[in-house]
Design a protein around this nucleic acid. Sequence first.
DNA 1: CTGAAAGCGCTTACAG
DNA 2: CTGAAAGCGCTTACAG
Lengths: 353, 353
Amino acid sequence: MNSSRTVSLADVAREAGVSPATASRALNSAYGVAAATRERVAEVARRLEYVASPEAARLATGTTRSVALVVPHLDRWYFGEMVGGLEEVLRAAGHDVLLYHVGDPEGRHAFFEHLPARRKVDAVVVVAVPVTDHERRRLELMGVTIVAAGGQDAMYPYVSIDDAAAVRQATEHLLRLGHRRIAMITAVDPDRTDQPIHRGRTRGFYEAMTRNDVPIDEELVVTTTWGGVQAAEAMEKLLSVRELPTAVLAHSDEMALGAMRTIRRAGLRVPEDISVIGIDDHPLAELVDLTTVRQPVRDQGLQAAHLLLALLRGEQPDRAQKLPTRVVVRSTTATARIDRSGAEHSAPGITRH
Amino acid sequence: MNSSRTVSLADVAREAGVSPATASRALNSAYGVAAATRERVAEVARRLEYVASPEAARLATGTTRSVALVVPHLDRWYFGEMVGGLEEVLRAAGHDVLLYHVGDPEGRHAFFEHLPARRKVDAVVVVAVPVTDHERRRLELMGVTIVAAGGQDAMYPYVSIDDAAAVRQATEHLLRLGHRRIAMITAVDPDRTDQPIHRGRTRGFYEAMTRNDVPIDEELVVTTTWGGVQAAEAMEKLLSVRELPTAVLAHSDEMALGAMRTIRRAGLRVPEDISVIGIDDHPLAELVDLTTVRQPVRDQGLQAAHLLLALLRGEQPDRAQKLPTRVVVRSTTATARIDRSGAEHSAPGITRH
DNA sequence: CTGAAAGCGCTTACAG
DNA sequence: CTGAAAGCGCTTACAG
């Protein structure tokens, strides 16, 4: 495919008056070559603009110097941000970064069945993807190192946030504002409803409510798949309960925005009638003044990459790293009105009980 | 790095009772092998779970079967969406997808200086990145095929939208609503202010205004770098002119949201006082009811990938593909009030002239 | 249709 | 410190 013959190690060696073996050593290993020789070879390599063939090197060493990034979505901010962080440190460490988009179950299946066997990578980073036991075994079988970025399982080394803590923070923020009837829009992954993350986030809500002796109305906990439009629909359900919630906690900022749209369309105001809080601190959250729980996504990517590199070097890094989250108060949450009757903006039938 | 010895072509050949050469042909080329032989080899390969070593194949053929995606940002929806489209068809065509994040000028420089020489890829697609003449020459020198996704230069094959047309549509939408004092928040790339895209978008505005005999107040055309916060600041400038605009056109949805925040904070309403229109149809635009010009981003990625594949196959595809855009009317734009004085919500000094 | 042989461009024990 | 040699796992003319 490449036009003009590229200069090879042999060319450099000849030009420098040494054997290919010595040239190779001079260019790679620190020791075992006379300083003068090393310099001469380096100089020639530079002059000839020599660059080693990665294929040949890989074939000879059995190492690929590349890692696979397994990502379920690319069109959502969270994933792009995470990948950006990963790419940065992996690339800087001299690794090639292969992108694998495995949106649906089939795609993921195909990935785990083929990639490992292809020996294309030394490691794989799964970005917030739940990995089944079977899939994990495939990977381990082939000896590739695996790390989770934004993952939540403790099955392999990971860097993520504490999902339960994030939701707990959001819940406590609302409780502090005097809210008691707090609704939650829970997100689940369409093809893996047993995914632990939801248990984590959902758990944080129950913990905070219980700890503060606030009863939970199960009618106010609705579940849907990730996405603003889905959340908007879920919010419609919440507006249909007998007594409206005074606050809504969504599992993501996108979902919070979806909920807000429904609230507004119903003629209610945010935060006067209903407070809304999201999770993420999506870059647009700032622009729409959305109160949220900030999670450091890019940092998770950076740290996960460092974790992977440490593992690859044979070190014993901390295999379970959780990054802190914190509430970012903006203008979609406000004090709950004590005298709130819930009937003011009621839909038909709401005042009945 | 990999644990157990993987099964090689030689293993398959031995097991099938043929030479490695024949095994190779049986597995790859369609012709030149007896049907029975081919089947036997295929069967053995399957049973042994044989997968060819990509390194060896590449070294032997001189082809890499992989393409580089050069992306300036990963944290913005536009880029993630584009990459998603590209990855899908490239992966399906059997190519590896290498991700190169080249945010700053140095990163881009490093990429163009090193990558081509490394012969790691057969092709590169630049995602909305302006490529200098020098950089393009480097690539061509090495014989790699190059394609632009979302690019705007006509220097190499590309798939994009017609920037001028998109802005023209937005402008005409506002004109049709009766707006005359239309402001535009123009976006520029921080490190390449001479980038043609801005000329394209900006041009569409001038064309539409001129064509409709509406005078342009240069005070209402402000320039800033991409980003909601920057646009919010640019909007402050627009609120400082003597006579306020009745509508604002932003070069992206993020920017439109930034402008809206400033407008609201100034005590003005959208769209009653000032209409706002963006460009993109970002997924969140729907949730905040933002009127915008929709561009098919994922499609651009898909098509660009197909364009690249066609080029790689030696075909002669259409080297300049522009995808259509269209206005998506939501609730941030409304009819201009004829009786608008511009003084109602004025800041100090605004009424003076 | 099939096999023996050379080669792709490196790396790395093994000797000196 | 340095070189000759073998090998990494394929592919592909070149003969049959």
